[in-house]
Write a protein that binds this DNA or RNA. Structure first.
Lengths: 157, 157
DNA sequence: CATATTTAGTTAGCTGGCTGATCTTTTAAT
DNA sequence: ATTAAAAGATCAGCCAGCTAACTAAATATG
């Protein structure tokens, strides 16, 4: 009775990878934000810090590129991080346009907390994945990321 | 010279599924928003419309549950959809608290546009996936969604 | 019947993304 | 040297999410 022909179109829609991805995406972001909130950070800040832990003193434009984010987004994030004293900014000597972003001591100190929280995220929510899935997923996700960051404008006119 | 022992920790971080998922998430959301913008919609509105095409006249709380969204989020989305005349709201007769959301003619009419755009999304960005991946991904994504929507508070005190 | 609790929605205010416009500084071109 | 173009950063304003706090209606409870 409920399997009328009317439903077919919608079912297709909801079975697309794009749809499923959207649902995962939304749910995941909320969880991530909540988890990082436990250590006083916002999700976006974590990724920015990660890049700085990797290489301190980057310019904003470098961060934007590495994180695949727009410049204003990075600008606002840094503002937030400066306010809670995790990073400092400094005008570049050679180039008056650039601002370099440096970790403060507190910024460095957050690393263990973030790692711990990250580990929890990974273990708490992904416990149900079997070994095969754990192997495949990284590849698939990487593939997806490349698809969405790389071929943004690849559509017919 | 650059491959010091210092880097090891960070590399682990960036190989976690959580990290990769975050990157996909951000990239995908931007693409999705851009694509739906081509037909005058925002990403969130599309999902709400989808539910209404499935079953018209839902209450906001129903929509929130089905979409796994918070009530204020749905409230704002509906506001936007009302403004562009895709849905109308109507106070429930039996229950003065509820508002039911109904598609307008224009709301119904968007369906083809959305489907078309959705198809493009699916074909343009996921062309590189092979058949195996196309089979596995839906399962994996569904699994992830359940993990992130279901076990939100499953952590030690 | 009166009061307390639950439920549905809204408002306010936050971060995370974006685009578009603006400003300053550099660099390129004439 | 002057002007034009490019690059780095910011500001304003938008939507998608959220939480917290609130109103109003419905239901429980006494």
């Amino acid at each position: 009775m409920k399997l009328g022909a009317v439903m077919e179109e919608e079912i297709i829609f909801q079975k697309t990878i794009s749809y499923l991805l959207a649902r995962v995406t939304t749910a995941y972001k909320t969880v991530l934000e909540r988890h990082m909130g436990l250590i006083g950070l916002h999700a976006g800040q974590v990724f920015l810090l990660l890049e700085l832990w990797h290489e301190d003193g980057l310019r904003q434009v470098d961060l934007a590129r590495r994180l695949s984010l727009a410049a204003p987004t990075v600008s606002k994030m840094i503002k937030g991080l400066v306010e809670i004293n995790l990073v400092e900014i400094e005008r570049e000597d050679g180039d008056g346009r650039s601002t370099r972003v440096y970790l403060t001591d507190q910024g460095h100190a957050m690393r263990d907390d973030v790692n711990a929280q990250w580990l929890e995220l990974e273990t708490n929510y992904l416990a149900d994945l079997n070994e095969t899935e754990r192997l495949i997923l990284p590849e698939l996700l990487t593939k997806l990321r490349k698809a969405y960051t790389g071929a943004v404008d690849a559509e017919e006119d």
